[in-house]
């Protein structure tokens, strides 16, 4: 069944006779035209990467960062309408802050994804709003060791808090992707935006579910995938933006940070080289 002309696609929160919400589907269209965004869950961290299309020569290079920090240990990259992405991030920051108010500690990545899923879903329920024109990828590192609660001043008894099982694994890298419908899944590798199909097939080749890929390798793969997914012929130039979150013992000490320039440039050089090699093979 087609959507146009039926009248069922003119308002949010209206079902068509075959049970679809067309406004949400149209919002997805807005996402599909955005620059490619990907996230990779590696064994010791998470990488977020974005193909930032350069819409004008007059833009200041290397400024206009689009991957946002939500809490110290968490980042969001999104594809679609830029202002909607900022709205999403702003709400995510509020959720993370209110979690801290309540629990005196950082929000787990899964809880943030859950709350943002609910928030985005609420924008499909009412005719007075429109759905989000973004698909957002949330990456985070939940602390693997017991961290002090916010405001803690002493060490207290050294037995630690109770209710813990010996040998149980806590925390680690997490990755979620939230769609305009409010639907979200956990991922090993997530991709959205224009080049998502190519990016997805590249991500699948990495066998991420095995949990073997290291963070440093992940950075290089992320850069390569963004370059592969970029369509030279159709698209404008782009800047590669990358952030990462490692374990507490890793390079970012559990914090969400920009990938250092040297490492990013190295990854880009490798990405370009691998593209050239592929072309030679053809």
């Amino acid at each position: 069944m087609t959507s146009i002309g039926t009248g069922y696609d003119l308002s949010n929160s209206v079902f068509s006779p075959d049970g679809r919400n067309f406004q949400v589907e149209y919002a997805v269209k807005a996402v599909e035209s955005g620059g490619t965004a990907i996230g990779i869950r590696c064994k010791d961290g998470v990488v977020l990467a974005l193909e930032k299309l350069i819409t004008s020569k007059l833009l200041k290079p290397e400024a206009n960062k689009r991957i946002a920090t939500v809490d110290r240990n968490m980042g969001v990259v999104s594809s679609g309408l830029l202002p909607d992405g900022r709205h999403f991030v702003s709400r995510a920051r509020d959720e993370a802050a209110s979690w801290r108010q309540m629990y005196k500690g950082p929000i787990p990545t899964s809880a943030l994804a859950n709350r943002m899923g609910s928030y985005v879903q609420a924008y499909t329920l009412y005719s007075s709003v429109r759905p989000f024109g973004v698909t957002a990828i949330v990456g985070g590192w939940d602390a693997e060791v017991e961290v002090p609660v916010d405001g803690q001043v002493g060490s207290g008894p050294n037995t630690g808090s109770g209710g813990k099982k010996d040998g149980a694994k806590h925390g680690g890298p997490f990755l979620y992707m939230i769609e305009p419908s409010g639907l979200y899944w956990g991922y090993y590798g997530a991709a959205t935006g224009k080049g998502r199909q190519i990016a997805k097939s590249e991500l699948e080749k990495l066998n991420l579910a095995d949990g073997e890929l290291s963070l440093e390798e992940g950075v290089k793969e992320a850069a390569r995938i963004i370059y592969v997914a970029h369509d030279d012929n159709k698209d404008k130039e782009f800047e590669l933006e990358m952030t990462w979150i490692s374990s507490l013992t890793g390079p970012t000490k559990g914090r969400h940070e920009e990938v250092p320039k040297e490492l990013r440039e190295e990854a880009e050089t490798l990405a370009k080289k691998s593209l050239d090699d592929d072309k030679m093979d053809e």
């Binding site: 400024a63 960062k65 920090t69 809490d71």
Partner: peptide, 24 residues
């Protein structure tokens, strides 16, 4: 007061998080 100090510490913590949203 130590509990008021802890309150202020959490306040400063949230301020610090907000200040570090942008690395630039």
């Amino acid at each position: 007061d130590v509990s008021d100090m802890q309150y202020l510490d959490r306040l400063l913590n949230s301020l610090d998080i907000r200040e570090n949203y942008s690395s630039t």
